[in-house]
Design a protein around this nucleic acid. Structure first.
Length: 553
RNA sequence: UGGGGUGUCGCCAAGCGGUAAGGCACAGGACUUUGACUCCUGCAUUCCCAGGUUCGAAUCCUGGCACCCCAGCCA
């Protein structure tokens, strides 16, 4: 085997082969989104595949709007797409390119095709076209217009362009083979009449090229060497090649190579369903943190490093693969862990009175458990604090490493406290804990006389900052059934902790420009776009991993 | 159903005729002022199935099976 042969990435291997064989001497790839929707994790995956190839071979990467359908596309989407790609940090040469800019050349190529006798104008209606096409098992039938003369075809095509015929009246079709077992080759439509304003070319055109005709030529015009796409297009490859070969084009001809689609457990990426969720108001918008859109993931606090790390690890499947979300979350934690500070926030506060404490003192606590460069901060501790309701149990189960009557725990960065008394309201609900602290056990003092049951986080009452914390869970109860999407929704995908309290240090972090941090024991959070100076709002990016398994009884 | 594509651990995934990498998840254990992090350990005698070729097969051949894609004037 060649020592340079790239393993584990068949596309890279193919490209290298092309380079070594001299078929090409450089690499150009492209990502061709249609500006009719927002980018999502699957888009990032596709972008990464094409982009990483140009990184590997010092090539060029184009971001091309695949805008050949005037009825569906909009400038709003190109702006959104550009913003998302910019966020990913992928370099596409500064400016996106537009497939619609090649309309004139595409038209000329079509004229060429007609002159070569390889395309004809067909008057069949949509319904007739379908009938003539045949089925998967039966061959199609030649169009009665297939034998028109080149002159007549030319004349008709020009008149189609000039708007002489109504929408759908005629099409330009390739003359290939109506009996081909590959449906794409049964004289496919190349151009259709669409009198519709195009967001970019305006009203200049009455005819628009179809994807199968436009794509290979757009690639060719841009000098794309390797056109990488998902394998739903394998059946289209013969047509892609037919278009290029039929034109006898000089120079490098692009080569299409397919890769498998990416699915993630519990996540839906199809535009249609994403649109449904937004339209039905199931989510707050395209940037809802529960959505796998790039905007959603960005708002949720996923970093581009985490996303690329994840993509790097899953590789390039040849066929559709469904990766466990846990893998994505793992990379998010891995990335955040080293770069965000750690503060304390109590999501569901339970009041604790420290009976033997009457002053408020400042404790110095480190901002990161491993990295000293994050420095330390002053955290107040006084006679009244709040702890997490879940960190107290009147009747603790086995192995409960938190607070319980008569039990002693350590307050992170502070002292040991012992629960002496439990105060309940009329309904028997615990509303307050009376605890005593041991001054000898101050953090860092080296006290080792006793071992506390565990360490919990807390927030001092007088300086506590109220905030809203949003916890997210998967949108669907299980692997979503796309046909019954709204029925498989997880009703608890968003949990709002409206009465959360965070330590003053959190505001300091925000003031210092750090909008992402770990809330000790609760996970990684990001200040939400809904947050204001009056009302802080945090979104949980991802929870911490936990090996704690509550016992059944 | 005609054609095309794909089948290696629960999930991704290496492997390219020489005797099954790695990651996630999971299960134990160490450490721990986060039940986090980190660190150990375990986790496919077997590669969709059945035959065949070979000293030797996940890799080659034959035949099955399963799943996915294609019948838009969408992309």
């Amino acid at each position: 085997m060649h020592p340079e042969t790239e393993r584990g990435n068949y596309i890279k291997e193919e490209i290298r082969r092309d380079l070594e064989a001299g078929r090409v001497d450089h690499v150009v790839t492209r990502f061709p989104p249609e500006p009719n929707g927002y980018l999502h994790i699957g888009s990032a995956y596709a972008i990464n595949i094409s982009w990483s190839m140009t990184q590997a071979f010092n090539g060029k990467f184009n971001l091309r709007m695949d805008d050949t359908n005037p009825a569906k596309e909009d400038m709003h989407y190109v702006e959104a797409i550009v913003a998302d790609v910019d966020w990913l940090g992928v370099d596409y040469g500064g400016e996106p390119v537009f497939g619609s800019d090649y309309f004139p050349q595409l038209f000329d190529y079509a004229v060429d095709l007609i002159k070569k006798g390889r395309a004809f104008v067909c008057d069949l209606s949509g319904d007739q076209l379908r009938e003539y096409r045949g089925t998967l098992t039966s061959p199609g039938t030649n169009s009665p217009f297939r034998q028109r003369s080149i002159e007549e075809n030319l004349d008709l095509f020009l008149r189609m362009r000039d708007g002489e015929f109504p929408n759908g009246a005629k099409t330009l079709r390739a003359k290939i083979d109506m009996t081909s077992p590959n449906m794409n080759l049964r004289d496919p439509v190349l151009y259709r009449i669409v009198k519709h304003h195009h967001y970019r070319s305006g009203d200049e055109w009455c005819v628009y090229p179809m994807y199968d005709y436009a794509h290979p030529l757009q690639d060719y015009i841009e000098g794309v060497t390797h056109s990488l796409c998902s394998n739903e297009f394998v059946n289209n490859r013969p047509l892609y090649e037919w278009v290029l070969n039929s034109l006898d084009l000089p120079g490098n001809i692009p080569r299409q190579i397919e890769f498998g689609r990416l699915n993630i457990t519990g996540v839906v990426t199809s535009k249609r369903y994403l649109r449904t969720l937004v339209a039905e108001g199931v989510v707050s918008g395209w940037d809802d943190p529960r959505l796998p859109t790039l905007k959603g993931m960005r708002r949720r606090g996923y970093t581009t490093e985490a996303i690329f790390g994840f993509l790097q690890e899953i590789g390039i499947p040849k066929w559709e693969a469904t990766v466990d979300v846990a893998m994505l979350e793992y990379f998010v934690r891995q990335d955040l862990q080293d770069k965000v500070p750690c503060v304390m926030t109590v999501l569901d506060p339970l009041k604790v009175v420290i009976t033997n404490k009457d002053d408020v003192e400042m404790l110095e606590i480190e901002n990161h458990p491993k990295d000293e460069s994050f420095g330390t901060r002053q955290v107040p501790f006084g006679p009244e604090i709040y702890i997490e309701r879940a960190d107290f149990a009147e009747n603790p189960p086995k192995k409960f490493k938190r607070l319980a009557p008569g039990v002693e725990v350590r307050l992170k960065g502070g002292y040991f406290i012992r629960c002496d008394d439990v105060i309940k309201d009329a309904n028997g609900e615990v509303v307050e804990l009376r605890c005593s602290y041991d001054p000898d056990t101050k953090s860092g003092a080296g006290f080792d006389g006793r071992k506390p049951k565990g360490t919990i986080h807390w927030v001092e009452a007088s300086e506590a900052v109220p905030c809203e914390v949003r916890l997210y869970e998967p949108m669907f109860s299980e692997q979503p059934d796309e046909e019954k999407l709204l029925e498989t929704l997880n009703p608890d995908s968003l949990q709002v902790m409206a009465n959360a309290l965070t330590e003053p240090g959190t505001k300091e972090m925000l003031a210092a420009g750090k909008n992402q941090m770990q809330f000790l024991r609760n996970g990684y959070f990001i200040e939400d776009t809904d947050s204001t100076a009056d009302k802080l709002v945090f979104t949980r990016t991802v929870s911490l991993r936990s090996s704690y398994k509550p016992s059944k009884s």
